[in-house]
Amino acid sequence: MIEVSELTKCYGSKRAVDHLSFTVRPGQVTGFLGPNGAGKSTTLRMILGLDAPTTGAATVSGVPFHRHPRGLRHVGALLEAGQVHGGRSAAAHLSALARSNGIPRRRVDEVLQEVGLTEVADRRIGGFSLGMKQRLGIATALLGDPPVLMFDEPINGMDPEGVRWVRRLFRRLAAEGRTVFLSSHLMSEMENTADQLVVIGRGRLIAAESVRDFAARGTRSSVMVGTPRAAELAAVLTAAGASVEPEGSAGAEKLAVTGIPADRIGALAFENGIRLNELTTRTASLEVAFMELTADSTEYQAGQPR
């Protein structure tokens, strides 16, 4: 369990994290989402005791993490994958970390096996691809067999096979009753992985709820209707209680209908003898919900002076 309450971090006059409060529960995968520069990494660093909060507090399993003399058995963390010394082998890197926490040497071989790096264990990390470094970072996090795991952008640089593997790993770690907290700036990464979401923008909390609730918050599902008699159908649908937005170009008019489902629209068209060329339900994706909710809080937006 990770508990964050009223966490604030200021760098000079800039507030990177602003009165942030949320709880991450065990047995679930919780996604930590926000646009670039939203304060995700700063928040993770404060939870891990690397940065001191300006105000507020964060605890892991009820204790501020920095109070532990040794950390690996309490929290496993993948920060940035590049945070290794390129001159060391993967095995030496993990051995040094394991030894500092009194973790037996055989555990190093176990986690290397687990992440699929056994064959390159004695190669210098400097020659690793980003995906391999991510795997090494995950091995580091697993080293102490901790009840709480935090991963900062774990999927960056992984190939499709790696992404599938890492998703299954996260699901399994959660199923084992661990707290799994993943940060990402891509909603699509969370769609099939996370149960819960914590969404932030410009350091403030935007949402903390289940993935399903979050998706429902975004654009309600709409139906695309293509018909040669757009104006007539629009009148019929409006009369039936739908809200209708004309779309498409002259000659290929379309209507974006919200408020009534596709089968009802089909029935109304049939009753009124209006021919339909297209009838498609557009469900709101998490991506859309995310974009809508964070639109006001994006730190760096291309081409739009604020």
Binding site: G49, H66, P69, R70, G71, L72, L79, Q83, V84, H85
Partner: peptide, 20 residues
């Protein structure tokens, strides 16, 4: 070298007792 590569963060998460 630990500060430059960022390894110091991994080290500090493993051993929060920084002075040690």
């Amino acid at each position: 070298s630990e500060y430059n590569s960022g390894l110091i963060r991994t080290t500090t998460v493993a051993v929060p007792a920084r002075g040690s």
